[in-house]
Amino acid sequence: MQHLSTISEELDFYNTEECLIYLMNSYGVELKRLAYTYVKDWGKAEDLTQEVFVTCYEKLHTFQGNSAIKTWLYRITINKCKDVLRKKNVLDYFSLQELSQIFSKNEPSLHDQTSLDHDHDRLSLSEKVMSLPIKYREPIILFYYSELKIDEISQLTGLNTQTVKTRLRRAKDKLKVMFEGSES
C-alpha cells in the first residue's frame, strides 16, 4: 500500500520509538503469522517477531523507502525464520512421512500408504499447505496468503522469478495430489 512507504519520510517528525509502536501494532500479528508459517511454533514465532521489531528499530534509519515498509519487514522476518530453520536439528527438517521414506529401503507398504492417505483425508487445506516442505510452502504462503506478486516473492526470497513460479506450480501439483487422494 502506498501509504506504508511514506512512514519513513515522517520519521523526522515522529521519534523512532513511536514509529516502532505504530509498526508493532500494525504488523505484529501479520508478521507473527508469517513467522509461524515457517517455524510452525507459536512460541518461536512470537520470539522471532520480537527480534524482527528490534532489528527494525535498529535499522529504521537505514530504511530508504525504496520498498514498502511491509516488504522490508517481511524480508527481515523471512531471513530470521530461515536462520532458525537452518539451525534446527536435522530431525526437525523433515516430516515423519519424509523421514520414513528416507530411512526406508523399500517403498512404503500398501498399509502405510493407505494410512498416510487417511491422514491427508482429515487435513484441511490449511493443514495440507502447512504440511508441504518449506521449499513449496513458502511460495504458496507468500502468493496466496500474503498476496504478494511473483516479482515481490522473488525479491524477498532471493530466488529468480521462474524458480518461484516453478515452485508454486509444483506446490500446487502436490496439493492437487493430496486432494485427489482425499477425494478418491
Binding site: 508493532m24 505484529g28 500479528v29 508478521l31 507473527k32 503469522r33 509461524y36 508459517t37 507459536w42 514465532a45 512470537e46 517477531t49 484441511s124 490449511s126 493443514e127 502447512m130
Partner: peptide, 8 residues
C-alpha cells in the same frame, strides 16, 4: 484456523 492464535 491454524493462524487464529496470532496475537502479538
Amino acid at each position: 484456523t491454524l493462524l487464529k492464535e496470532a496475537e502479538f
